[in-house]
Protein backbone atom coordinates (compact mmCIF):
# COMPACT_ATOMS: atom_id res chain seq x y z
CA UNK A 1 0.00 0.00 0.00
CA UNK A 2 2.73 2.46 0.93
CA UNK A 3 4.49 1.91 -2.42
CA UNK A 4 1.45 3.34 -4.23
CA UNK A 5 1.21 6.27 -1.80
CA UNK A 6 4.96 6.87 -2.09
CA UNK A 7 4.73 7.25 -5.88
CA UNK A 8 1.64 9.42 -5.44
CA UNK A 9 3.69 11.73 -3.20
CA UNK A 10 6.65 11.77 -5.59
CA UNK A 11 4.42 12.48 -8.62
CA UNK A 12 2.52 15.22 -6.82
CA UNK A 13 5.83 16.73 -5.67
CA UNK A 14 7.17 16.80 -9.22
CA UNK A 15 3.90 18.26 -10.53
CA UNK A 16 3.65 21.00 -7.93
CA UNK A 17 7.37 21.82 -8.29
CA UNK A 18 6.93 22.26 -12.06
CA UNK A 19 3.88 24.48 -11.48
CA UNK A 20 5.84 26.53 -8.91
CA UNK A 21 8.82 26.94 -11.25
CA UNK A 22 6.55 28.13 -14.07
CA UNK A 23 4.67 30.51 -11.75
CA UNK A 24 7.96 31.85 -10.38
CA UNK A 25 9.13 32.77 -13.90
CA UNK A 26 5.76 34.28 -14.86
CA UNK A 27 5.70 36.35 -11.66
CA UNK A 28 9.21 37.65 -12.31
CA UNK A 29 8.27 38.71 -15.86
CA UNK A 30 5.17 40.51 -14.55
CA UNK A 31 6.72 42.32 -11.58
CA UNK A 32 10.52 42.14 -12.11
CA UNK A 33 10.76 41.68 -8.35
CA UNK A 34 13.75 39.51 -7.60
CA UNK A 35 13.30 37.13 -4.67
CA UNK A 36 15.79 34.55 -5.98
CA UNK A 37 17.77 34.72 -2.73
CA UNK A 38 14.88 32.88 -1.05
CA UNK A 39 12.75 31.53 -3.87
CA UNK A 40 14.89 29.76 -6.45
CA UNK A 41 14.61 26.48 -8.40
CA UNK A 42 16.37 24.46 -5.68
CA UNK A 43 14.19 25.79 -2.85
CA UNK A 44 11.02 25.38 -4.92
CA UNK A 45 11.77 21.77 -5.84
CA UNK A 46 12.81 20.98 -2.28
CA UNK A 47 9.79 22.62 -0.64
CA UNK A 48 7.27 21.01 -3.01
CA UNK A 49 8.81 17.55 -2.75
CA UNK A 50 8.90 17.88 1.04
CA UNK A 51 5.27 19.02 1.25
CA UNK A 52 4.02 16.21 -0.99
CA UNK A 53 6.07 13.52 0.76
CA UNK A 54 4.75 14.76 4.10
CA UNK A 55 1.28 14.51 2.60
CA UNK A 56 2.03 10.93 1.52
CA UNK A 57 3.12 9.97 5.04
CA UNK A 58 0.10 11.76 6.49
CA UNK A 59 -2.30 10.04 4.11
CA UNK A 60 -0.76 6.66 4.90
CA UNK A 61 -0.99 7.29 8.65
CA UNK A 62 -4.60 8.44 8.53
CA UNK A 63 -5.61 5.47 6.37
CA UNK A 64 -3.94 3.11 8.86
CA UNK A 65 -5.54 4.84 11.82
CA UNK A 66 -9.04 5.28 10.36
CA UNK A 67 -9.50 2.96 7.36
CA UNK A 68 -13.07 4.16 6.67
CA UNK A 69 -12.85 7.91 7.25
CA UNK A 70 -9.07 8.36 6.97
CA UNK A 71 -9.13 10.03 3.55
CA UNK A 72 -11.82 12.53 4.53
CA UNK A 73 -9.99 13.50 7.72
CA UNK A 74 -6.65 13.68 5.88
CA UNK A 75 -8.14 15.93 3.18
CA UNK A 76 -9.55 18.26 5.83
CA UNK A 77 -6.23 18.42 7.68
CA UNK A 78 -4.27 18.93 4.44
CA UNK A 79 -6.61 21.75 3.36
CA UNK A 80 -6.50 23.41 6.78
CA UNK A 81 -2.71 23.21 7.04
CA UNK A 82 -2.35 24.54 3.50
CA UNK A 83 -4.62 27.45 4.27
CA UNK A 84 -2.96 28.17 7.62
CA UNK A 85 0.49 28.14 6.00
CA UNK A 86 -0.23 31.35 4.09
CA UNK A 87 0.49 33.26 7.29
CA UNK A 88 4.20 32.45 6.80
CA UNK A 89 4.81 34.58 3.67
CA UNK A 90 2.67 37.36 5.14
CA UNK A 91 4.54 37.49 8.46
CA UNK A 92 8.07 36.79 7.22
CA UNK A 93 10.76 39.48 7.47
CA UNK A 94 12.90 39.34 4.38
CA UNK A 95 16.57 40.38 4.33
CA UNK A 96 16.70 44.17 4.06
CA UNK A 97 18.57 44.14 0.76
CA UNK A 98 15.56 42.55 -0.92
CA UNK A 99 13.38 45.25 -2.40
CA UNK A 100 9.60 45.25 -2.72
CA UNK A 101 8.72 42.81 0.10
CA UNK A 102 5.12 43.89 -0.59
CA UNK A 103 5.23 41.62 -3.65
CA UNK A 104 6.50 38.55 -1.79
CA UNK A 105 3.09 37.24 -0.62
CA UNK A 106 1.81 37.50 -4.20
CA UNK A 107 4.56 35.14 -5.29
CA UNK A 108 4.44 32.63 -2.49
CA UNK A 109 0.83 32.41 -1.30
CA UNK A 110 -0.46 30.80 -4.52
CA UNK A 111 2.46 28.36 -4.38
CA UNK A 112 1.35 27.14 -0.97
CA UNK A 113 -1.72 25.64 -2.63
CA UNK A 114 0.21 23.81 -5.38
CA UNK A 115 1.05 20.64 -3.36
CA UNK A 116 -2.60 20.10 -2.38
CA UNK A 117 -3.71 20.86 -5.92
CA UNK A 118 -1.24 18.37 -7.41
CA UNK A 119 -2.06 15.76 -4.76
CA UNK A 120 -5.82 15.90 -5.49
CA UNK A 121 -5.32 16.14 -9.26
CA UNK A 122 -3.36 12.87 -9.29
CA UNK A 123 -5.74 11.00 -6.98
CA UNK A 124 -7.56 9.14 -9.80
CA UNK A 125 -4.21 7.73 -11.00
CA UNK A 126 -3.35 6.19 -7.63
CA UNK A 127 -6.75 5.41 -6.05
CA UNK A 128 -8.96 3.04 -8.02
Amino acid sequence: MFRRIFFWGISAGVGSAVAALVYNRVYFFITEANFSKLVNPASLIGANMLACMLAAFGYWAFMKWMPRRGELVFNLVFALLTFASIILPIAIHLPLDIQFPELFPGLTIPMHFFPALAWHTLRPVFVK
Binding site: A91, I92, H93, L96, I98, P101, L103, F104, P105
Partner: peptide
Protein backbone atom coordinates in the same frame (compact mmCIF):
# COMPACT_ATOMS: atom_id res chain seq x y z
CA UNK B 1 11.46 52.52 3.77
CA UNK B 2 12.05 48.77 3.84
CA UNK B 3 11.40 46.81 7.02
CA UNK B 4 11.63 43.49 5.21
CA UNK B 5 7.87 43.01 5.50
CA UNK B 6 5.42 44.35 2.94
CA UNK B 7 2.60 44.92 5.41
CA UNK B 8 4.86 46.90 7.76
CA UNK B 9 6.19 48.99 4.88
CA UNK B 10 2.65 49.93 3.90
Amino acid sequence: INTGNGMKNT
